[in-house]
Design a protein around this nucleic acid. Structure first.
Length: 676
DNA sequence: ACTTCAGCAGTTTTT
DNA sequence: CTGCTGAAGT
């Protein structure tokens, strides 16, 4: 299909969004309005109609999944070499690539490590332990604070001078030490992947020029989720040419608590007065009733850009509200209903999704689904990467590419057992600190025998020689072969067997490690012939989960989806259940206290707009919390929905006939307004 | 070094 | 009422 034909399939607004390339462009894309089509078509349009090289285009998303899907769809539009060199990645991967390209300018050594939040926490624990008696919550607070600072482009110096109270003062000091230590480990954390490029590009004109030459056009998905540093990165790269398209929906901003700044949508108009704003209001997903409910609900939030979704999919069924005696009845009801409705509507399991505010709500539901033998898929849960064997393997990989990574060293120096205990490590650490080098580097020092007993030195030496040997073999030839060999040589599997409750568990874990290495290899092959790709960068991307998931995603078995409202964003299902529409749950209690009701309302909005055909909202009259039976109040959001479109069931106050009649009239009036 | 126990917290979590 | 973390005991 030619690009012209492709364009002809888009609606006028979408076409306008694709064709407008002379300046900054903001696409306000309501839920289900085909924003991905706009982005992918626009990339094809830039290449095929405007003669822009794909190498000069960067499309940025927030999740690996979104990037993968977008890559896939663009791949179908661009044939052969046309798409060569196109960047479709997450913000973080883009940042990673900038850092890799500017390593020396930034003062990092090749093979730096990427600390995931757990590594970061371990480092913080170390740093704070010195100061005072630590407390897990305090560490979390400081970690969160540092992350916030980094997202807001606040450097340690500024944090220090602006600290409002002692707590912040303390956090700022930890922040400074934390950054210093990261640097010493030749490591960066997730937030640095954006922060460092921004700091670099705003202080180094040459580097800025380099990257502006590389990227001529940017497309940003889910723009309402950008934070300050991410916006700044786009700004820096695009300011001169002002050639970019950002796509977003302020009504689907549900990550403010994590630093997202939906007001970036407004800032954009101020920073770029020429900004072209295009609204996509036609929804291709849901029925009229579902959209009207969504519109009505969200109209309770203030808006800078008003928008009203509409669809030509017909009116559809009313929204059912099911009130249950208690949470168990609620779960029972949802489970049994899916069971019967699957037959009645001749649907598949995967046509159903159950959404909720907190993960704990899935528990009861799981039990009920199991009882009815309904296959389901639970989102979240322990991710592949938080499994111990994977963390071990990652630590080996990281130590191999970055000998300065003390965290990695500590994790695996005695895994499997090498009889290197805490005493030895403490002395080693003192020695290393004195000489200002890393633990692994210190292992190579002859002077060690001054501070450690013979036996300990010998054990450390064996470990050191082992790792050095692997590293040598990696450099010589087949890196992956050397890695596989390493796990066999140290008999990691035996160690797993020792620790596992059952042999099958150990086997599974070992298989996970091999999978990890397979993915690593695949990822390196994929990049071949493209940009330079070595083990180092492949391993960094591994930490970003760039490579993971694919497996999990490939699992397209037919199962009911259990998701948090947050996890449901971007997805759609024919039949959607949203559970727990109660005050203190949705909106969440903490949000009520914090006065962030609007984001809760958006969360409900996201939930509603996931549904294509039917929507069922459920709640319980009583719920067990903290071991106590609590009375629940129906969510205020229910009152904000158009009464006429609702079909209540099991409401406490018995429905009087008058009201029912009124409802009928409302429905007719509603219909008229929808048609007219 | 591994297990057990007490105490405490208890939203959401793209990377 | 859970389920997890951190510390203490064997």
């Amino acid at each position: 299909m030619s690009i012209q034909q492709r364009l002809a399939k888009l609606n006028p607004r979408q076409q306008e969004a694709v064709r407008y390339i002379d300046g900054p462009c903001l696409v306000l894309a309501g839920a289900g309005s085909g924003k991905t089509s706009v982005i992918t078509t626009k990339i094809a349009y830039l290449v095929q109609e405007c003669g822009m090289s794909a190498r000069k285009i960067a499309a940025v998303t927030f999740t690996n999944k979104a990037a993968r899907e977008m890559k896939e769809r663009v791949g179908q539009l661009l044939k052969g070499r046309e798409g060569h060199g196109l960047t479709v990645s997450t913000f973080h991967t883009l940042g990673l690539n900038i850092i890799r390209g500017e390593l020396r300018t930034l003062g990092y050594k090749p093979g730096f490590s990427l600390f995931d939040p757990e590594d970061a926490k371990a480092l913080l624990r170390d740093l704070m332990q010195k100061d005072a008696q630590i407390d897990a919550e305090q560490i979390n607070r400081v970690q969160h604070q540092i992350s916030t600072w980094k997202n807001d482009l606040v450097l340690p110096g500024q944090a220090m001078s602006h600290a409002a109270d002692d707590d912040e003062q303390f956090a700022a000091r930890v922040y400074e030490a934390y950054n210093r230590h990261l640097k010493a480990y030749n490591a960066v954390d997730f937030d640095d992947l954006i922060l460092l490029p921004v700091v670099l590009l705003s202080s180094d004109a040459e580097a800025l020029a380099r990257w502006r030459r590389k990227i001529h056009y940017m497309l940003v998905d889910e723009y309402q989720d950008t934070n300050i540093s991410q916006y700044q990165l786009v700004q820096l790269l695009m300011a001169e040419r002002a050639t970019f398209t950002v796509v977003g929906d302020d009504d689907q901003s549900i990550y403010a608590w994590r630093g997202a700044r939906p007001e970036n949508l407004v800032t954009l108009g101020e920073d770029f007065p020429r900004l072209k704003v295009i609204k996509l209001e036609q929804n291709y997903r849901s029925t009229g009733i579902i959209l009207r409910a969504a519109n009505t609900l969200i109209s309770n939030n203030p808006h800078v850009y008003e928008k009203a979704l509409w669809s030509d999919k017909g009116i559809g069924a009313p929204i059912r509200i099911v009130v249950n005696r208690h949470e168990e009845a609620e779960a029972e009801r949802v489970a049994s209903e899916i069971l019967t409705r699957r037959i009645k509507e001749s649907a598949t399991w995967r046509d159903f999704a159950v959404l909720y505010r907190g993960n704990f709500q899935a528990r009861l539901l799981e039990l009920k689904l199991q009882h009815y033998q309904v296959p389901y898929k639970l989102s979240g849960g322990t991710s592949f990467f938080s499994r111990n064997e994977i963390k071990d393997a990652m630590a080996y990989l990281r130590l191999l590419i970055n000998p300065g990574d003390d965290n990695a060293f500590l994790r695996i120096v005695n895994v499997p057992r090498r009889e290197i205990g805490p005493g030895t490590l403490e002395k080693l650490a003192n020695y290393a600190t004195e000489r200002g080098e890393s633990l692994f580097a210190a292992c190579h020092e002859l002077g060690l025998s001054q501070v450690l007993p013979e036996r300990a030195v010998e054990r450390l030496g064996r470990f050191t020689r082992f790792i050095d040997g692997v590293r040598r073999r990696m450099d010589q030839g087949h890196a992956l072969g050397a890695l596989r060999e390493m796990f066999r040589d140290m008999d990691y599997e035996a160690w797993l067997h020792q620790n596992a409750s059952a042999p099958t568990v150990a086997e599974r874990r070992m298989a996970n490690v091999w999978t990890l290495l397979d993915q690593l290899e695949k990822s390196m092959e994929r990049e071949e012939g493209e940009e330079t790709d070595d083990v180092e960068s492949a391993i960094s991307r591994l930490v970003l989960r760039d490579i993971l998931e694919q497996q999990a995603e490939e699992d397209d078995s037919d199962r009911v989806q259990l998701l948090t409202l947050h996890a449901a964003k971007g997805l759609e299902f024919p039949h959607v259940y949203v559970m727990g529409l109660e005050e203190e749950l949705l909106p969440h209690r903490n949000a009520i206290e914090a006065g962030t009701i609007e984001e809760e309302r958006r969360l409900a909005y996201v939930g509603i707009t996931r549904a294509r055909q039917t929507l069922t909202l459920t709640l319980a009259r009583q719920r067990k919390a903290y071991g106590e039976l609590m009375d629940c109040t129906p969510s205020r959001f229910l009152d904000e929905l158009p009464e006429a479109d609702l079909d209540w069931e099991g409401r406490a106050d018995k429905e009087d006939p008058e009201k029912k009649q009124a409802r009928g009239k409302d429905a007719i009036a509603g219909l008229r307004s929808l048609l007219g």
